[in-house]
Nucleic acid binder design. Structure first.
Lengths: 148, 148
DNA sequence: TAATTATATTTGTCATGACAAATATATAAA
DNA sequence: TTTATATATTTGTCATGACAAATATAATTA
């Protein structure tokens, strides 16, 4: 039987890279006394771009399930970074809005994200980065298709 | 201020790819009625290659902390897939050994891992895969250095 | 209209990741 | 030798991810 070799496996290196990048981001957030997680930032990021998204819409763009997005939103609301409003037309739906405080924090978080990108990608030139994104998009497409 | 654009961010695509790949692997495990997680497999994988590793050694190679490795090992032991033996020379240390049952399962898991690789990397040729691994290794190196 | 089905969100449970604190044993220093 | 320090592992807590079940409201069908 053919055994996988992790030291050569793309999948494995993606997994480890993801963990390490998250750890770096965590550390930077911590060093800046920002009490928020990368996942929570993700939600802030999208709301800052298009305010009023629903939990469901956010779930799709963040590739998380409803349950997690729901809980992350609860925490952000509790922290005063977003507000939840029930949709009048469809009362099942919640729309989420970023608060002023959320916007301020979001700007700081962009700085942190930028820093962690610089750290992670040091020594990898622009062209190589673009190719990485292209191939990773392909991976996401492939896996998405399989899971449908 | 310069804001990040997630649709172009390498970091972001690594994170999403990692989640999606794990989900695919999970599904394949499930479809094959294999009651194990990708992380647990990771430990089995290493023990199958070099039996008798300690929790600490495993932590290093799997990029997890001692706490998680400890708990993952507990579950594997409970499932009869590995056994833990205290080191005679240094009684703080536990050495882990894969059982026959663990070896059998490990072979099946290699099949599943192979399947999920094929799914994730469809349409990406061998050369591109090698470049991906090379660049991801660089990311791991960079982040590792920063976290030291 | 009443019953059924679909959709949006929430809650519960378990595994994992981060991190701090606790425990046990080794090693080094006074 | 006693004390202090370092190392290996475990346990506790909280956030997140997967997944199933529950709840509320809409939309569809009989």
């Amino acid at each position: 039987m053919n055994k996988i070799t992790l030291t050569k496996s793309v999948n494995h290196h993606i997994a480890i890279s993801a963990i390490m990048i998250k750890r770096v981001f965590f550390k930077i957030l911590n060093d800046n006394n920002l009490d928020i997680t990368p996942e929570q930032w993700n939600v802030l990021y999208y709301l800052d771009k298009s305010d009023g998204m629903t939990i469901g819409e956010l779930s799709k763009v963040t590739y998380k399930d409803f349950a997690n997005t729901s809980r992350i939103s609860q925490k952000l609301e509790l922290a005063g970074l977003i507000s939840k409003k029930r949709d009048e037309a469809d009362k099942r739906v919640f729309k989420l809005f970023i608060t002023e405080e959320g916007k301020l924090l979001n700007d700081q978080l962009h700085e942190c994200a930028s820093k962690s990108t610089n750290i992670a990608l040091e020594g990898i030139d622009e062209q190589a980065r673009e190719i990485m994104v292209k191939n990773l998009k392909q991976v996401i497409l492939n896996t998405d298709k399989f899971l449908k």
